[in-house]
Design a protein around this nucleic acid. Structure first.
Lengths: 118, 118
DNA sequence: AATACATTTCGTCATATGGCGAATTGACGG
DNA sequence: CCGTCAATTCGCCATATGACGAAATGTATT
């Protein structure tokens, strides 16, 4: 029950859902998530730690930067299922679509090797 | 997004999840849910109204009694999907199992025609 | 080792949420 | 038209949550 509540509580905030939907396009550096959500770094860090606590995302460190990505299917089936549910029910959502467009523009301006935006 | 957030927020409380899982066994009178959750009537009423707001449950009035049931598949596919997800991930949960056992004992003591427990 | 930068942790504040009891509403049955 | 009972709404309180800035941490780079 605790595990499920961790997931549903993690999903009960709009900014965290937006972050998850953006991660559909691949891993992101924290600084990019901060810019996309337009929130204070400390706030975004907290959000991401809640998503991580719920096993919805995983992290990778590269030098000064931390990258977040959606959790592996194998590592957490329940998480993958519910993210799929979110995706199918939010693909037409205006905010999610705007985020996606904005994110693509953002990505095209930068190399993918490491975070050049920070 | 609002619709999805209504659902995830509704599911971010243990007692509401317990109520939903109990409704898997069929509709229930509010007074039975109150007894099962062991909370004040006003509290349970609030919980059920949140689940209803999220379109996760529907109501039926019969005289003085109000019965709650899981929403129809057709009326709300998203709700049905997520309830299915909950069910498959909580079927082994100790609290949910205890509730189910207790609920069955409860039901066997009473007629199903109308609420005889109140 | 000292500085610079990305991220996290901590402390604080305003608001949201979950709980209860009291008061209200709605539906019988006298 | 009352009294009764189920359920809901309302008002209140304690705790949880989301936001921020300041301070701490970790990782290059000089």
């Amino acid at each position: 029950m605790r595990k499920i509540l961790n997931i549903t509580k993690a999903l009960s905030d709009e900014n965290r859902i937006r972050a998850l939907m953006m991660l559909q396009g691949g891993e992101m550096c924290v600084c990019n998530i901060i810019e996309m959500l337009d929130l204070a770094p400390s706030t975004v860090s907290k959000h991401m730690s809640i998503l991580k606590q719920a096993d919805l995302v995983e992290t990778r460190r590269d030098g000064k930067w931390t990258y977040y990505r959606l959790s592996d299917v194998d590592s957490n089936p329940a998480a993958t299922e519910i993210i799929q549910w979110l995706l199918s029910n939010l693909e037409k959502d205006s905010m999610v679509r705007k985020d996606k467009t904005r994110l693509n523009k953002y990505k095209s301006k930068t190399s993918t090797a490491s975070c050049k935006n920070c």
